[in-house]
């Protein structure tokens, strides 16, 4: 286990370094400059040069990259057109656009994304897996057909369609739900939940559909396993067989998929955040790309990569805990 962890952590760091380098290179390969974005189309070349200098973009790429890395580990001093800013580690630089430290932007937007994803996850793990498992146990019945039919419908819906329709129906026309907004949970838990309800339902339903079909297929396969037959042959009741023997085996691969999904979502759920005008990581990232806001682009890309890599490691370790046959090494 220890050996596995060390190996994987090394691999993960290498991945993150590689991603940061590629992002950096890609950024400079774009035939445009943040200075143009900031200063407008009719800017004089002198002004552009000035802006670029103030952003530090006149430095060689390698220098910029090493500065960036140095900032993360020991902090750095940034000279923005005469204004000296002390940026303590972990320093991800200053946003080109808002001039605030990128860490502040992340600190503000990450809780939003985490709130959306955590709630949605609860919805699709319970509803999705629950429906899927039930459908598998009642395979071929009306319940199964309706559940699977509905999940095909939801799965083929896009977040912006479903989100838009729900927004119109539940908020604008009837006022059943409050307009989506973000209140920190520490401030007012009820309002936090109320503001998140619609995104949870939207993201939750669409993913429930996928998870329902996945878990149904898994469960049906598991129910045909020899060890399920053995459990029945022991004289165990159907409930015990299903719960203790079949479910445990069927759910393992689903947990791993959910873990990887969680990693991907924590890096930002761009469309959900946009549909409901919530300023999460996804929206910040999308905006940063449009603005060619290098520090924020780097930060969001690395954050997303970090979550994915971290969840992958966690999922692998979890797998080893659940399934005694899996040996890490």
């Amino acid at each position: 286990m220890l050996r596995f962890l060390i190996k994987r952590l090394l691999l993960a760091s290498t991945t993150l370094v590689a991603i940061s380098i590629v992002t950096f290179l890609l950024f400079f390969a774009v035939p445009s400059s943040p200075a143009w974005v900031m200063c407008g189309r009719n800017c004089s070349p002198e002004r552009i040069a000035q802006v670029e200098q103030s952003l530090g973009l006149d430095q060689p790429i390698t220098k910029q990259y090493t500065d960036f890395v140095k900032g993360i580990f020991v902090g750095r001093t940034i000279n923005d057109a005469g204004t000296i800013r002390e940026c303590d580690a972990p320093c991800l630089g200053y946003s080109f656009r808002s001039k605030e430290p990128v860490t502040d932007t992340i600190e503000r937007s990450l809780p939003v994304t985490v709130s959306i994803v955590a709630g949605a996850m609860v919805v699709f793990l319970t509803v999705g897996i629950g429906l899927g498992m039930l459908a598998a146990l009642k395979k071929g019945t009306v319940f199964d057909r309706v559940a699977i039919g509905a999940s095909v419908g939801f799965a083929s819906t896009q977040t912006y369609t479903l989100g838009g329709v729900l927004l119109l129906l539940l908020v604008y026309s009837t006022g059943l739900l409050p307009n989506p907004h973000y209140t920190p949970i520490t401030q007012d838990p009820l309002d936090w939940a109320g503001g998140m309800l619609l995104p949870w339902i939207t993201l939750g339903l669409i993913n429930s559909a996928l998870y329902a079909r996945l878990s149904r297929a898994q469960m049906i396969e598991t129910l045909q396993e020899d060890f399920v037959r053995t459990a029945r042959a022991k004289g165990l009741s159907a409930r015990v067989v299903n719960r203790r023997h079949a479910l445990r085996a069927a759910i393992t691969p689903i947990i791993t998929i959910a873990g990887v999904d969680l990693g991907a979502y924590l890096g930002g759920v761009v469309i959900t955040e946009s549909v409901f005008s919530l300023n999460g990581i996804g929206r910040e990232a999308a905006q940063a790309v449009q603005d060619l806001n290098l520090p924020l682009v780097m930060a969001t890309v690395l954050l997303a990569a970090f979550f994915i890599v971290a969840m992958n490691i966690i999922v692998d370790m979890l797998y080893a805990v659940i399934d005694p046959r899996v040996r890490l090494g």
């Binding site: 020899d226 060890f227 053995t230 459990a231 042959a233 085996a249 399934d323 005694p324 046959r325």
Partner: peptide, 15 residues
């Protein structure tokens, strides 16, 4: 009545 199955690896629960 008890049963012994062909392939004990798949007939025993792996977990």
């Amino acid at each position: 009545v008890a049963m012994i199955f062909q392939d004990p690896l798949s007939a025993l629960h792996p977990y």
